[in-house]
Write a protein that binds this DNA or RNA. Structure first.
Lengths: 124, 124
DNA sequence: CAGTATCCCCTACGATACTG
DNA sequence: CAGTATCGTAGGGGATACTG
C-alpha cells in the first residue's frame, strides 16, 4: 500500500484536525497551555461556539487535553497532548509551504482569472 | 513573525488545497498525468461535479495543469505543476502522520466517547 | 469564567439529468 | 469523453442570549 495514497480513515482523521479553526488553535496551544478565554483573545475572529466545538473535537481526537484547574472558580486549561505535539511536524510543513508559496499561488490565481475574463469577453 | 502562527492568507490558501477531495486527487496525480475519467476511477467515491470543482480550484491555484490533448476527441489530461509538486512535502507529512497515528487517535476517541457515555449514565 | 442553547443562513456536497 | 445544469439536503459556522 503506497503511502502516497490516502485511505478513508486517514482522510477522516485529517479532516478532523484541519477544519476551519484547528490549525490556528493548535498554533496557539503549541506555545503553551491556554485558558478558554485566552484562546478567544488569541484568535479573535472565532466565535465562542466554534471555539468550544473545535476544542471538543481536538480533545476527542486526543490532540488536546482539557484540564480543570479549579472547580469552584471555573478555571479550565487546554494543553497539547503528546499526540498533539506529534502533529507539529505536518502542521509546520503546511504553514511553511503556505508562506513560501503565497506569491506563486496569487500569481497563478491572477492569471487564471484573467484568462477567464478574456474568454468571457471573447464570447459574450 | 513566528512561523508557528497562521495568517489569514495562509489559512485561505491551505483551505483551498485541503478541501474534502484535494488530497486524494493530488495523491493520484502525483503518480503521473491522468484523464478526467481516470481520476473518477481512482477516486470512486467522488462525484463528477465535485471532481470538476476540485480540479478547477486546484488549477486556479496553480497546483494542477489542464492540458487539452485533442480538441476533436475531447481528450484532456491533468498533471501536477511545479508548484503542485512543491506541495508534496507537506502532503506527505500529513499522510504519514495520519497513518502513523491512526491507532492513537482511535483509542483517544473510544476513551472520550466512553467517558461521555459514563457521564450520561451517571446523570440521566 | 467557561461554556450551552437557539435560531438561522449559507454553501459544500450529493444525486440526477443533460450536452458538445 | 469531459464536462455543465439543476435541485435538494445536512451540517458547519455566525449572532445572540442564557447559565452554573
Amino acid at each position: 500500500m503506497p503511502d502516497a495514497c490516502l485511505l478513508g480513515d486517514q482522510r477522516d482523521l485529517i479532516d478532523q484536525v484541519l477544519d476551519k479553526w484547528s490549525l490556528s488553535i493548535l498554533a496557539v496551544l503549541l506555545r503553551g497551555p491556554h485558558r478558554f478565554n485566552e484562546l478567544r483573545r488569541e484568535v479573535p475572529e472565532i466565535t465562542q461556539k466554534s471555539l468550544a466545538q473545535t476544542l471538543k473535537r481536538l480533545e476527542r481526537n486526543g490532540i488536546v487535553e482539557r484540564i480543570v484547574l479549579d472547580t469552584r472558580h471555573f478555571a479550565v486549561e487546554y494543553r497539547m497532548t503528546a499526540l498533539g505535539r506529534s502533529f507539529e511536524a505536518p502542521r509546520q510543513a503546511l504553514a511553511q509551504w503556505a508562506s513560501d508559496h503565497l506569491e506563486d499561488v496569487n500569481k497563478a490565481r491572477a492569471s487564471y482569472d484573467a484568462d477567464d475574463d478574456a474568454r468571457a469577453a471573447a464570447s459574450p
